[in-house]
Simulated assay, not measured.
Amino acid sequence: MKNENAVVLITGASSGIGATYADRFAQRGHDLVLVARDRTRLDALTTRLRNEFNIAVEVLPADLTQPSDLQVVEDRLRNDARIGILINNAGLAQAGSFVQQTPDSIDQLLTLNTQALTRLAAAVAPRFVQSGSGAIVNIGSVVAFAPEFGMSVYGATKAFVLFLSQGLNQELSSRGVYVQAVLPAATRTDLWQRAGIDINTLPEVMEVGELVDAALLGFDRRELITIPPLHVAERWDTLDAARQGLMSDIRQAQAAERYRV
């Protein structure tokens, strides 16, 4: 199944980036499977999309930090051959510094932002490879580049998302599967409020529609890394080239001269 006819499964679909992806794919004529915890919001969104765009929309309520709910979504991705696009959007932000985090908050952040995202991609990838088509979109963050921001756990999860997406591209692109990592900066969504952060204290915030429209332009261009707020695209090219240069200077048979006693 080619992407232009595919059903799109979107996690974190009840509001913000996920709901906007649902709107944009509905405009493109895609049927949808919407995954989130908030059944009331999902139902309201579903009714609007069905009425406005005459598409099929299925609600799949799930808390992806709960193993049983995650299993339901995994099974759907494995077994529903109509689903050809996965938007891995569900995620949590971090409130407070590292020393203010509780074990439960750290566990929830890691579970949703990394484990659930990875398992959903792993559930659908074998079927995509078998069909020779399909797309996985992972929503990361520019915080992945910025330990200076003081969001150590959140930033680490988004660095994981970036690395995973790059690795999956290496493994899957030659087999017909497209992988995209989308890295927003601050975007006007409910994510901040749920984390206890006042978004109005941030100096610059992108509107969610602008973010998703830019991400979808990158999707249509088949970009691996899409960074909507990056205004000088060559910055990313320079960073990636520096990384590859660093790897070329690693010679693992001996320690570098500066470490020899």
Rank of each mutant, 00 (worst) to 15 (best):
G245T: 08
P184Q: 03
G218I: 06
I225C: 04
D213W: 00
G176C: 09
D249P: 00
L183S: 05
F219R: 06
P228A: 05
D220T: 09
L172S: 09
Q244H: 12
A195C: 04
N200V: 00
I225G: 06
E234Y: 08
A195H: 03
Y178M: 05
L168M: 15
E223T: 04
E204F: 10
Q166D: 08
R221S: 13
G209N: 15
A186E: 10
M247D: 08
L239M: 14
L239K: 08
S248E: 14
E210D: 13
S248H: 09
H231C: 00
V177F: 10
E207G: 09
D198T: 01
E171Y: 02
L239N: 08
V177M: 12
M206G: 01
N200F: 01
S248R: 13
T187L: 05
S173L: 04
R188E: 09
A233M: 06
D190Q: 15
Q193N: 11
T189H: 06
F219M: 10
E223H: 10
R188W: 07
G167S: 15
V179E: 04
A214W: 03
A242Y: 05
H231N: 10
Q244W: 09
Y178L: 02
T189N: 07
A186C: 04
E223G: 04
Q180D: 08
I199H: 07
E204W: 06
L183N: 05
G245M: 04
E204Q: 13
A186V: 13
N200R: 14
G167R: 12
G167K: 07
M206T: 14
R194F: 05
T238F: 14
N200P: 01
G167T: 12
A241F: 11
W236S: 09
T201H: 07
R221H: 14
V212C: 06
D213T: 09
D213I: 00
V179W: 03
V212D: 06
S174E: 15
D237C: 05
E207W: 03
S248F: 00
S173P: 00
D220Y: 03
L216D: 03
G218V: 07
A186W: 08
L191M: 12
V179D: 03
I250C: 13
E234I: 14
A233Y: 01
D190Y: 03
I250H: 12
P184V: 02
D237A: 14
F219T: 05
T189Y: 06
V208I: 10
Q166K: 12
Q193E: 12
I227R: 06
G196H: 07
Q180W: 07
D237V: 10
N169W: 10
P184C: 02
A233L: 11
L191C: 01
D190F: 02
Q170M: 14
Q170F: 04
Q170L: 15
R235D: 15
L211K: 02
T189M: 06
T226N: 07
L183A: 05
L202M: 15
L217D: 13
G167L: 07
Y178C: 00
V177G: 12
L211Y: 02
S173M: 04
G196I: 05
Q244V: 09
D249C: 11
A241C: 07
G196F: 04
G245Q: 11
Y178A: 08
L216I: 06
T238P: 01
A186Q: 11
I199D: 10
Q180G: 09
V232D: 15
D198Q: 07
I225E: 12
A233D: 14
T189C: 07
V177H: 09
V205Y: 04
